[in-house]
Write a protein that binds this DNA or RNA. Structure first.
Lengths: 352, 352
DNA sequence: AGTTATGTTGTAAGCGCTTACAAAACGCGC
DNA sequence: GCGCGTTTTGTAAGCGCTTACAACATAACT
């Protein structure tokens, strides 16, 4: 009877926007037909469909997602939790993810974990409460509760930024360890023996850890014991890179090369060297990791590992949406991270 | 009767997660009580509340946002449409927005317009379909349909990145024009007379337009007719900045200063100058706009306009959430964009 | 024409929650 | 012990949509 009252008061409630039922009345059809026009237009005869569509336009009808989600059990929303949005390499991935999802009619619910697995868990719950149809996570290390929640809600998910054939979870990414090993080896091959590292913060960050470990392992394998004071960890800021480089340049045994856990730190290191009047690469070599656009443009251009950030976003969206629609699709995709040799690396200076 | 069937088959449907009703049964109370524990705990007696909370934990209950949104008419989701996520200055704003919203129990639905008002309109509709409780838009220029949809759905919104006292729309931002004028004046005061500009693309972008206009107006006021070939427009990429700078440096009347529409273009210009062996600022001055973290760290540090990107995100979240909760709050907030004089600007070279 | 397969539309029962309203329980003063 | 106001809890009617199922119309066969 409330509904009837609403009908009676229709003139009054002109602001409360049109519902599917209003469209149905306007077009002289049942609500089921309108719903079909919206969701499975092929099932509706041409003439009727046109009439309904006209009514939709006339009334400026906008579907009510919550009602639709409740009835159909899918929200057309996918969620993503990234460590931080404020990080060029993630944001390019998010951008591509959002665009691809939008092309499929999905919207993106975005959350950030601040590199904390506990926050990630909480954000995951918040996203789950919003009935996301799928979830994208960064990295392979997550709170077990995350997976159990996802499982009990039967929400498909995928870990990006990592590749692990043996993982029990779908993942789309590249081998963080391998690429870091390669770039270290490249420096060794150039003749560097004093190699320092400015790593990202490895706490609860499997990508940063993998990169750090790869460098350490490779140096060890080459018979170079990594000294503690030449391995630094810094948060994701250019200023932190500068700060760390400053510290490294004060060392008794000054490094001839600095490996950075990401491009932001590498740019900081580069700028610090420049500020101190050092020539890069003739005095000191610097390498980054990520492949930000700016890395290729800075003078001198930064040698780095280019990771497929855009591709990961696109593929993650496609994987999730396929899975949501019960279309089988490959659940593990290995992408390549490529060494981009540019201008910040060369043989170590003779004076060594 | 379907519901009854479900009850009977409960053992079978262990994967379909717990509903509020299940919690109610488990705790031996009505659904209303459970709902109250969730939404207005003060209304429930202590002992009962504890019992219900225990049941919630036992069953791993996660609220069903769509159902909740349908019944309560609020989704606890706020939307944001930015030109592109893949842009450091927007992503820092989004990050702060998302964090602040999350603190209030809201999640962020994110869309991008690709600097197209038409896409923006479409994304707006998509967000509206998801029943967002509020919307954040960048800039003051939007398709009229956007505002009418928002109005008919009665969804509060706010334009950020701009400040306009006379606007009919809520806005939180700064004066793009004024700050650009100031930085231009600063260059004039230093003695520069050959001033070029690398503007952002101004199409459907009121922020980029305002900045460009401010520069042109200021140059005009100083009696300097801006020459066409010294005013360039480029998209938001470091490489575009380099490219534009390259072109400007080829000019017969080489500029002694380059004003850039944003820091990314400015960095590109800086790198190009460095690559060509020019000394910045003694040979040529460069200024940016935005105040990215890297601008302060690059060598030489970039003179720029620091805009309150984080603050805009935070305040926008707060404004929207207050408005959603019917708490009156100031709907126009003027923030300051500050000139940061650093190392890429000085008097023009004598040789002029 | 009669029968069957196919295509098109309508009816109505939920989806899981909130909330107005009613009912019950409690506390207090007398 | 009663009446009253207050607090606490329950009942049940939706929120706006989708979709199984039924009903009907049409096309395709014998």
């Amino acid at each position: 009877m409330v509904k009837q009252l609403r009908e009676i008061l229709k003139i009054t409630r002109q602001n409360s926007s049109a519902r599917l039922e209003d469209v149905a009345h306007h077009a002289g059809v049942s609500t089921a037909t309108v719903s079909r026009v919206l969701n499975q237009p092929d099932l509706v005869r041409r003439t009727l469909r046109d009439r309904v569509e006209a009514s939709i336009n006339d009334l400026g009808y906008v579907a009510h997602g919550a009602a639709r989600a409740l009835a159909s059990r899918r929200s057309r929303i996918i969620g993503a939790i990234v460590p931080t949005i404020d990080n060029a390499i993630f944001s390019s991935s998010i951008q591509s993810l959002q665009k691809r999802a939008s092309e499929f009619g999905y919207t993106l619910l975005l959350a950030s974990s601040d590199y904390s697995l506990d926050r990630e868990k909480k954000e995951c719950q918040a996203l789950l409460e919003q009935n996301i149809d799928g979830l994208i996570l960064v990295g392979e290390e997550h709170d077990p509760a995350v997976f159990s929640m996802l499982k009990s809600k039967q929400v498909p998910y995928v870990n990006i930024w990592c590749y692990n054939e043996d993982s029990e979870h779908p993942n789309i990414g590249f081998d963080n360890y391998l690429a870091a090993k390669q770039i270290t080896q490249y420096l060794l091959d150039l003749g560097h023996r004093q190699i320092a590292m400015i790593a990202g913060v490895v706490t609860e960050n499997d990508r940063a850890s993998a990169r750090l470990n790869a460098v350490m392992d490779t140096l060890n394998d080459a018979g170079l014991a990594a000294e503690n004071d030449s391995i630094l960890q810094r948060d994701y800021q250019v200023s932190s890179g500068r700060d760390a480089a400053k510290q490294l340049l004060k060392l008794d045994k000054q490094p001839t090369a600095i490996i950075c856990g990401n491009d932001v730190l590498a740019l900081g290191a580069l700028f610090e060297c420049q500020a101190q009047g050092l020539k890069v690469p003739s005095d000191i070599s610097i390498v980054g990791y990520d492949g930000l656009e700016i890395a290729a443009q800075v003078t001198p251009a930064l040698t780095t590992v280019v990771i497929p950030s855009i591709q990961m976003g696109v593929l993650a969206a496609e994987f999730l949406i396929s899975t949501i629609n019960k279309k089988p699709i490959q659940s593990k995709i290995k992408l390549e991270a490529e060494l981009a040799i540019r201008e910040t690396t060369s043989k170590p200076p003779r004076t060594n």
